[in-house]
Simulated assay, not measured.
Amino acid sequence: MHGAGNDFIVLNGLDQDLSNITREQWQKLAHRQFGIGADQILLIEKATRPDADFRYRIFNADGGEVEQCGNGSRCFVRFVLDQGLSTKNPLRVEVAHTILTLSSRDDGLVEVNMGAPIFDHSKIPFNARGLATKQEFHEMLYALPIATPAAHDSWISVLSMGNPHAVQVVGDVDSAPVLEEGSSIEKDAAFPKKVNAGYMQILNRKEIKLRVYERGAGETLACGTGACAAVVSGIRRGLLDSPVTVHTRGGDLQISWGGIVNEITQAVIMTGPAITVFEGETKI
């Protein structure tokens, strides 16, 4: 399946026990030459909480398990409904640290309540010690040193959408050094659990272009949580107004965020496509 070009292997773990698959086996399944090929793998399981309909786990192409995946959440909904695993709409699904509410719309798009963004450094997690800072409207920016041959500082916003993001604004996203610098940002010591590196170009107050270098996967054609993080960052920096259309290399996403109202951080709403490419079987 894919959500705006961010592609997934989706596995039904309800009818078969897939709990003992190793990291190396996940890597092989995700390999584009020696396996099926995917940015991430979604494993659908029975919920462990009474307030959820299902649970799903997310494995990156490198075999590592991660907390959240926005485009994957939309594919999850499409898979569950198309496979007849549930007739509920909306669905409540358990991911690593929270419950998501997901709705399939009549126009074929999927709407996801992604929950509230997280700014607490200890929960991202992010260690800002030693980094220069500057305030831009409601957002604090941090100067992250980029360890590449063209070494320099990048001013980043830092937040979590259930997974950590470092977002920077660039003049032209197509020529931005995503592949050259993304890995350096991903593995920077300021991020104990690594980070997704987002590059955002502001087109107008309602529209951006975005590229994301994802933890454990490299650059993907789209990143749902990255789109949410970029829009939240842009609104807090006074550059954007909700809702915002996010143009990724794989397609468009619509992101809405109401900001912080009466000291309560509002949830981010993401809407976008979820497409089944093919179904099949593989032997592990």
Results as ranks from 00 to 15, higher is better:
65 E>G: 01
261 V>Y: 04
259 G>M: 05
228 C>L: 08
3 G>N: 08
167 V>Y: 01
155 W>V: 14
96 A>N: 12
190 A>W: 02
116 A>W: 03
76 F>I: 07
240 L>T: 09
60 N>S: 05
272 G>K: 13
279 E>W: 04
48 T>G: 04
110 V>M: 10
258 G>V: 08
77 V>I: 11
164 P>D: 12
174 D>Q: 13
119 F>P: 03
257 W>S: 01
47 A>N: 06
78 R>N: 08
281 E>Q: 13
6 N>F: 04
264 I>P: 00
272 G>M: 13
93 V>W: 04
16 Q>N: 13
186 E>Q: 03
210 L>V: 07
228 C>N: 10
123 K>N: 11
65 E>V: 01
99 I>M: 11
191 F>S: 04
54 F>Q: 02
233 S>N: 06
149 P>T: 13
169 V>G: 10
99 I>R: 05
219 E>F: 04
167 V>E: 05
138 H>E: 15
204 N>S: 01
230 A>G: 10
220 T>H: 05
152 H>N: 14
4 A>R: 01
12 N>Q: 09
59 F>W: 11
21 I>K: 12
258 G>W: 01
62 D>K: 08
247 H>C: 08
162 G>F: 04
62 D>Y: 12
251 G>A: 02
176 A>Q: 11
134 K>F: 00
255 I>S: 00
217 A>D: 09
206 K>D: 01
63 G>Y: 02
194 K>S: 02
133 T>E: 15
198 G>F: 00
145 P>W: 13
231 V>C: 06
261 V>P: 02
249 R>K: 14
89 N>C: 08
96 A>V: 09
221 L>T: 10
186 E>M: 02
132 A>Q: 15
67 E>G: 01
91 L>C: 03
65 E>H: 02
107 D>T: 04
13 G>L: 03
199 Y>A: 08
44 I>N: 01
270 M>D: 04
29 L>H: 05
53 D>C: 06
67 E>Q: 13
148 T>V: 15
282 T>N: 01
60 N>D: 00
193 K>M: 03
166 A>M: 11
131 L>G: 14
202 I>Y: 01
222 A>S: 15
114 M>R: 06
67 E>K: 07
236 R>K: 14
83 Q>E: 12
230 A>V: 12
85 L>H: 11
272 G>L: 14
50 P>N: 12
235 I>L: 02
192 P>C: 05
193 K>S: 03
232 V>N: 06
8 F>G: 04
110 V>F: 02
220 T>E: 11
156 I>K: 07
130 G>N: 09
205 R>V: 12
244 V>G: 08
163 N>G: 10
177 P>D: 00
140 M>V: 13
169 V>P: 00
225 T>E: 13
134 K>E: 14
